Computed example of a mutant assay.
Amino acid sequence: MLILTWNCQGVGRTLTSQALGDLVRKNRPSIVFLMESKNNKVKLETISNKLGFDNSSYVDPDGLSGGLVLWWDTDVKLDVEFNSKNYMHVIVSEIASRKVWAGTFVYGCPARAGRNIVWEEIRRIARAELLPWLCIGDFNQVLCNNDKMGGNYPNQSAISLFHELISDCGLIDLEFKGPKLHGGITGTGQISSWSVLI
């Protein structure tokens, strides 16, 4: 099973929608998680139907920022247990294998001040979850200096706190795919810096 996560920075734009369509057609993911969708449910449902996803869950954007999207196909059954503007926690049942696991799809708070609140929520989930657990998304935090190119030097205290989160939750970094975070800004249509943890 393949899961696609993408901080798309606005899925309604033509180039981003085309790139998303290309990724879905090429890779055929069972689950798609989009962060910073910046669009309402009506617009997102139109896109999901074009891409062949019959099932969905959304967290609406706050004005012109944020918004989470979770789409899945008939290979899996998802039950959304709870969500917030920074994460969606679900129970996933794989139809063919009958495997059941928990997933937390994360969009870390972009502002450093709110990040600790999200970290504590993830810790709470880690302590309570009894099923095998996948924690995936864009945590808006690098693990080391090499994860970022250009711009300001990463804050070492923030890096240390992120390492503590990973250790406290028993997570393993599977490393990001796609271009490195460049100067704090990623371009439209690119898979931005994202981490996969399990």
Score class of each variant (00 low, 15 high):
179 P>W: 01
193 S>I: 03
49 N>M: 07
197 L>K: 03
152 N>P: 06
188 T>I: 12
126 A>W: 08
71 W>G: 09
150 G>A: 08
193 S>F: 13
80 V>G: 11
56 S>I: 06
113 A>H: 04
31 I>T: 14
131 L>G: 11
7 N>D: 10
171 L>R: 03
135 C>E: 10
146 N>P: 00
131 L>W: 11
162 F>T: 07
188 T>Y: 03
176 F>D: 00
119 W>V: 05
132 P>S: 12
147 D>T: 05
48 S>C: 09
153 Y>K: 08
164 E>F: 01
87 Y>V: 01
140 N>V: 12
95 I>N: 04
27 N>A: 07
118 V>P: 14
71 W>E: 11
77 K>R: 11
129 E>N: 13
123 R>T: 07
2 L>G: 02
62 D>T: 15
63 G>I: 11
74 T>M: 02
76 V>W: 02
15 L>W: 04
59 V>T: 09
97 S>Y: 06
90 V>T: 15
23 L>I: 07
194 W>L: 01
108 G>L: 02
175 E>G: 00
25 R>N: 13
49 N>I: 01
141 Q>L: 02
95 I>V: 12
98 R>H: 03
192 S>F: 03
33 F>R: 11
61 P>M: 04
67 G>W: 06
72 W>S: 07
124 R>H: 02
70 L>M: 13
109 C>F: 07
19 A>V: 14
95 I>S: 01
91 I>D: 13
153 Y>P: 00
70 L>T: 15
104 T>W: 06
48 S>I: 05
76 V>T: 14
123 R>W: 03
100 V>L: 09
11 V>F: 12
57 S>C: 12
63 G>Q: 06
156 Q>A: 08
193 S>H: 15
65 S>M: 12
62 D>I: 15
82 F>K: 14
101 W>E: 08
64 L>K: 12
51 L>Y: 10
52 G>P: 01
68 L>Q: 03
142 V>A: 05
165 L>A: 07
178 G>M: 00
195 S>V: 04
128 A>N: 13
36 E>M: 09
54 D>A: 11
89 H>M: 10
164 E>G: 00
30 S>I: 02
163 H>K: 13
114 G>A: 10
4 L>Y: 04
56 S>M: 07
137 G>W: 10
178 G>W: 05
17 S>G: 10
143 L>G: 13
189 G>N: 05
120 E>H: 14
148 K>Y: 09
84 S>Y: 12
13 R>V: 02
112 R>W: 09
79 D>Y: 04
65 S>C: 11
156 Q>G: 00
120 E>Q: 15
137 G>D: 05
95 I>F: 01
91 I>W: 13
70 L>F: 01
104 T>Q: 04
37 S>M: 13
127 R>G: 10
132 P>R: 11
62 D>N: 14
113 A>G: 00
176 F>W: 03
80 V>W: 04
119 W>H: 05
130 L>T: 15
1 M>P: 08
